[in-house]
């Protein structure tokens, strides 16, 4: 009986009504976390003794980069679930989360570049992390392009699921190869990973903003999934009732 929730996930109707009441609280809590974390990081956290105030970019750069990766893992897992169990919700989830992942990767890239200008002296550096986020961004764009290229929904579902799974298998290889390539090409430049240990005043706001980002994005994903469910299930009577009751 423990697996009942898992099987219920296959039902768009069940998911729609379960998730409906979650969207606004998630978005609300998320924005509170975001505002608190970012204001704390911008105004109250102490400046870094090496980088000064530029280091404050970390409070958006790190959450965005983390989300860009987490979204891809979720995408790959959903693709796997779809290929194995043909679960109806999986492609809906993939469709909802892919653009969000792409935006997160873009934010990580842009803030990384802006951060790079005062610290490294250039906008772009072929740093292992920036490069692997760039690859991630391209993977997202490929998935979005593939998804919108098909007229047939079933085929779009299958095709994107295949790419997501292949991407999930390849992502560690890509990451490893880029890190390895980077160490080969350039010596120890300043690396974001080798920061001196942060003090609590610095990482607490980071933690808050990371949690805020995650909650906010979870709310957005659920919201997008709801639109997608309504669109895909428009022939069923419960969708008709839901739409007509709500009014314009």
């Amino acid at each position: 009986m423990r697996w009942v929730w898992f099987h219920k996930l296959g039902s768009p109707k069940w998911f729609f009504f379960q998730s409906k009441s979650w969207v606004l609280p998630l978005l609300g809590l998320g924005s509170i976390g975001l505002i608190v974390g970012l204001v704390w990081g911008l105004a109250f956290a102490p400046a870094d003794y090496q980088q000064g105030d530029t280091f404050r970019i970390i409070y958006i750069h790190v959450p965005a980069a983390m989300l860009a990766q987490s979204c891809y893992f979720a995408l790959g897992a959903a693709g796997f679930v779809y290929l194995v169990w043909q679960m109806k919700m999986a492609p809906i989830f993939i469709k909802a989360i892919a653009p969000i992942g792409a935006v997160m990767a873009l934010i990580a890239l842009v803030t990384g570049a802006i951060w790079g200008k005062p610290t490294w002296g250039t906008w772009w550096i072929w740093d292992a992390r920036l490069t692997s986020v760039l690859v991630l961004f391209f993977l997202y764009m490929g998935i979005i392009a593939l998804q919108s290229a098909f007229d047939d929904v079933m085929l779009a579902n299958k095709a994107t699921a295949v790419v997501c799974v292949v991407g999930l298998i390849n992502l560690p290889i890509i990451k490893y190869s880029v890190v390895w390539w980077n160490t080969l090409h350039q010596g120890a430049t300043f690396s974001l990973a080798e920061k001196p240990a942060m003090s609590a005043e610095m990482w607490l706001p980071l933690l808050v903003s990371v949690v805020g980002f995650y909650l906010f994005i979870a709310g957005l994903v659920l919201w997008r999934m709801q639109s997608e469910i309504l669109q895909r299930e428009h022939r069923s009577s419960w969708v008709k009732k839901e739409v007509m009751d709500r009014g314009l």
Binding site: L38, L42, A47, G52, D53, T54, R56, I57, I60, H61, A64, V103, L106, I107, V110, T111, I114, W115, K117, P118
Partner: peptide, 18 residues
């Protein structure tokens, strides 16, 4: 922000806009 304001604010601005 100790001369780094342009960078910090543009990074925050872009992200919030996105």
């Amino acid at each position: 922000m100790g001369k780094h304001g342009v960078y910090v604010w543009s990074a925050y601005g872009f992200s919030m806009l996105a």
